[in-house]
């Protein structure tokens, strides 16, 4: 009875010391720190390639994109965060052809599910790595993805 009482005390105190050993060992090993100092390390901070920051439309050097304005991304978006404003262009043969006027993207409504990027038949959309999206005005989250004066890439149907 008394023996088990004393044994219990020593055992308990022993477990407490093991616990304190863990924290103390970290206290004296400052190189185990994992903190990243964010605004300072902005330059070295590289997001991985697959990171889903926002939906972008890559343009090449001639300011050409590959969006044909088919509207599949708009249909597939679960949140309605993509809106297409299309127009009809007349090409050399005199045929009318659908093309985008504005590819509107509401970042504030996007949940990064990736369906628009995946289902795009001409691979016109891609995920960008930008992650600093905080703005003071919500309307700034509505973006036009195609650049001013951009045209459709040759050979993309």
């Amino acid at each position: 009875m008394l023996f088990s009482y004393i044994k219990g005390i020593f055992k308990g105190v022993g477990t407490l010391f093991t616990g304190m050993g863990v924290t103390t060992s970290y206290f004296f090993r400052p190189w185990t720190k994992v903190t990243q100092k964010y605004p300072e390390n902005r330059k070295e901070l590289k997001m991985v390639e697959a990171f889903k920051g926002e939906v972008t439309m890559p343009h090449n050097a001639n300011n050409e994109h590959s969006c044909t304005g088919c509207g599949i991304c708009e249909i597939n978006c679960p949140n309605g965060s993509i809106e297409l404003v299309t127009m009809f262009l007349v090409n050399e043969d005199g045929k009318k052809k659908k093309a985008i006027d504005k590819h509107i993207y509401h970042l504030g409504m996007c949940s990064m599910c990736g369906l628009c990027v995946k289902t795009c038949p001409s691979n016109a959309l891609a995920f960008g790595n930008e992650f600093e999206h905080a703005v003071f005005d919500r309307t700034k989250l509505t973006k036009v993805l195609n650049k001013e004066g951009s045209t459709l890439k040759k050979g993309v149907e």
Partner: peptide
């Protein structure tokens, strides 16, 4: 500072 060092953090800096 002490608790930060125990928790692999930097603490106020």
């Amino acid at each position: 500072r002490v608790c930060a060092f125990m928790q692999c953090r930097v603490g106020p800096n």
